[in-house]
Each structure stands twice: as C-alpha cells, then as structure tokens.
Write a protein that binds this DNA or RNA. Structure first.
Lengths: 249, 249
DNA sequence: CGAAGCCTTGAGATTCCTCAACCCAGGTGG
DNA sequence: CCACCTGGGTTGAGGAATCTCAAGGCTTCG
C-alpha cells in the first residue's frame, strides 16, 4: 500500500473538493482539525481493492477522486454491490463497529483517497462533536442509499432497476459537477451493474440494450449519456430530490 | 399519538433493558443525560404505524419492547421491508438528514417506545460526544443489517433467503434473552417475510413449508421454533458471529 | 497474429410469479 | 348458538421473468 503525502496534488487548505457547492462549508478551525487528522493520501488503480472483505482497515478514507463501490460476497462467490462511492464519500466507517464479516471496497476507476488513522476516530469525536455529528450524517446518508438499493433488488423489475441505477448514478455525478451536456464518464462494466442490481450479466445486457434501443440512454466507450431523464425516472419510479449539501471530511 | 410518561412501567433508573448483557454499561452521568433527554414513552399496537413514510417525525425513539420494521413502498404499492427492529434499536435517526423520501416504521407486535425530542439531538451530540459516538455506532450497525438484507434480496435463492432470515431473527432475539428452548414469539405474517425477502407471498409460503417439511424449523401459532440451526445457517450461508454489546439510548 | 476481456445474442431450463381455489380459526350479529 | 364473514395460510396450475449455457464479435495488447 503506497501512502504518499498528497496524491491529490494540493495542500488541504486548497482542496478542490471543498470548493464545490455540493459540500457544506467548514469553519476554519474545523478545516484545520480535519487536515490535522488526515495522515496522507493513497492512489488505487481501477479494479484494485481499497479495503479487503472481512479485514478491518487501520485507515478511514475520504474518496477524493474517481469511482468505487462497496460489496459483499457469499461463500460461493456470488457478489452483491451494496452501493457506489463518489468523491466526498467516507469509506470504511462501518468497520469501526464491526464484528468481522465486513464489506469490501474496490476502485472502479483510478482513484485517489485521503487517509485518516482510524485509531484517532474516537478522539476526533471527543474533540470535535460537530464533526462527529457530520460523520453520523454521512453514515445515515449512506444507509439511505443502501435502503434504496434494497428496494430495487427486492421489488423492481429488471428494466426498472436499470433505469433507477442509471439515473441515480447520473444525478450523483451531476451534483458533483462531473457531468457535461448530459454525459458522464462511466467506468463500470456490465458485470458491475449486474452485481449491483441482483441480475445476471446476460439479462443486464439485454435490458440495457432494450432501454438504449428505446432511446432512453446511450452507454458506450466508457461514457453514459442520459437522453430521456424523465422517462428513465418514471420507469424506475425514482425521482430526484434536490440534494442537500453534505459534510466533507 | 398518545405519549405517556412511562408506558414501560419503570423510571429510567430502573430500566429493564439496561440490565441486559446485550447492552453496554453507561456511566452514571451518561444515564442521567439520556433520561434527561427522554421526553416520555409511547405505545403502538401491532399493525399501527410508528413513523409514517415520507414524513419527518419530531421524535426519535428507542424501541423498548416488541417487534417493528422499517419499510419503503414504491408508488404502485410494492413494499420492501428494509430491516427489523428489536428492543434497544434506535428508530428514526436517518430522517434527521433526510431530503424527504424517507422510510416508514410499523409495529409488528404491540410495542412500547421511549421518545426523544429530535430538536435536541444536535445539542445532545455537543454535550455528550461519547453518546454521539454511540449513536453513530448504532447507525453503522443498522446499515450493516441492511447490507446483509441487500445481499439476500440480490443474490440468494428463495430457500436461502428464508433460512437466513429465520436464523437472523432468531439470533437477534436470543441475544436479547427473548428465546427459550429454541423458541421465540414470532409476530410476523408471511406477508412480512415476503416483503422482507423480495419474494411473493405464495412463493414464500411454499418455501417456508418446504423447509418445515425438512424439519429445519417450525412456525405456527405465532411462535418460531428453530430445530436445525446449523442446517439453516449452512443453507442460508449466514453464520453467526458473537454479537458485541451495543450502546443503548 | 493470437490471446484475453468484455459485449452481444439465441435457445432452452428454472425459478419465481400470478391467478384461483380452498381451508381453517376467530369474531360478529341475528 | 349458529350462520356468516374476514383474515390469514395452503395448494395447484399455468405463465412470465430471469437464469444458464453456448457461441460469436469486437477491441486491445503483447
């Protein structure tokens, strides 16, 4: 594991993420406290593991750039993606309270992560209750995403699932300013989509192609283009709420 | 909504839950702070709503006795149960950070809940960072359960799902001392199980009966009896870890 | 040029769903 | 006290959605 001091290329005081409107402003002392806690950064290439399943990482992370996902696998190898991670997401918090049997985290594109030594988490809560509250916020927000994914896997049809996932990912990327003219860079393979939706690879492919033939979206060359957002939202019964700015560690 | 002062029948200083080994001991000042925050209690009968979907409750709850569940419904009525709630579980925290579109909570048996005014949550974090940390812990623990349920709905077969759910509920009840000689009171209807597992009612029924015919469990008269725990665990690919004691608000 | 990885498509098998009965226990009103 | 109704649970039959298997295409890379 290579932990360099700033793979992001900036000092924290000039963090590019923090200037985005998607994130809540922190006070100067809070920013200082976070920068203080931060021990460095780490690059993880597409397809590499960020946190191995069943292992408790000594580090917490904030995803600085790129796409990643949390997953669990059954003992015979069936894999379920739990949720996707975008810049600003906190990685590895649940392990703090784990009794083994935790999820894994893998990079879907090349990623850069800020690292925070886990053993100072409790101290950080104690000294900065406001930021502790923010961490709870992030945890609750992630749970809500998993809730949505569970509804999807449990109760939506294949076409509804695909529509919902495409819009969900697009909206989140849009919120972070990662889209342009209805397009996002999309590093996921169809296997990822299948594993996130609880579908087989083949059926995922057929469903994607069907929606694409209907002209709802285009997915090729590592780019996703949303052509009919309203149709996709209606099909997926998934309607966007204006997203509130969120804390950033 | 009837909020009485102690439907549990005790002052908080003699809370019966708190004496269970399933829960972490709090210091005297912490117990006092929790009792201070607690505004009363509320009884909710089986089948009644505790928190309505899409509404933000002014109260947080700790489930004191009985069984409940969180759920979401799609606009055409399809319902997905997200996870089950047992005594000691914190209810309604996610709403704090919600942008609308939240889950509902319903009592599966007659329940008693302790109430906490939500508008003092932030103040509580500030004054008792240790308890804030505990709340984060509870949130992370619940997310892990939803994670498991998502794996179930996405990747397990019907028989595996049922086996996993029965063992999961049994183990949690056992941890709280609610079991005796392999039996628990089981207030759920087959429709609840179906909604939790992402199966139809009919298929749930057939799967339950199949496992029962194999002698793995017995489910009748509102009681669940686990006859072959190891077989159920193996079938569900769901293995129990010793559960750590958990904070109790 | 061959190999590997991912996408695509068809065909047949399987799981799971829907529809439609029927059963049984409990509650209610005549 | 009994007829009826209601709400669960149970079962069978047929159909739909999804899965598995298998093959072939395209692109990238060595």
């Amino acid at each position: 594991m290579s932990v360099t001091h700033s793979a992001c290329g900036h000092p924290c005081s000039e963090c590019r993420l923090r200037t985005l409107p998607a994130f809540l402003a922190l006070s100067e002392p809070e920013r200082h406290a976070v920068a203080e806690w931060r021990s460095g950064s780490r690059k993880v290439a597409a397809g590499e593991r960020i946190i191995a399943e069943h292992l408790r990482s000594d580090l917490l992370y904030t995803l600085y750039s790129g796409w990643a996902f949390r997953y669990k696998t059954l003992s015979d190898g069936r894999r379920q993606i739990l949720n996707f991670l975008l810049p600003g997401d906190l990685v590895g918090l649940q392990d703090e309270f784990a009794d083994g049997r935790t999820h894994g985290v893998e990079a879907a594109s090349d990623t850069v992560l800020c690292t925070f030594p886990r053993d100072r988490l409790w101290d950080f809560f104690l000294q900065h209750p406001k930021l502790g509250y923010d961490i709870t916020w992030l945890a609750a927000r992630e749970e809500k995403m998993v809730d949505d994914n569970l509804v999807t896997a449990g109760r939506r049809t294949a076409a509804e699932r695909v529509a919902m996932l495409l819009m969900h990912l697009y909206r989140r990327a849009e919120h972070l300013g990662m889209t342009e003219a209805g397009r996002v860079e999309f590093p996921f393979q169809q296997q990822h989509i299948a594993d996130a939706l609880g579908l087989s690879l083949v059926h995922t492919n057929k469903t994607l192609r069907k929606l694409q033939r209907l002209g709802l979206h285009r997915l090729e060359g590592g780019w996703l283009e949303i052509l009919e957002p309203h149709a996709l939202e209606a099909l997926g019964d998934y309607f966007d709420r204006p997203m509130r700015p969120v804390p950033l560690l």
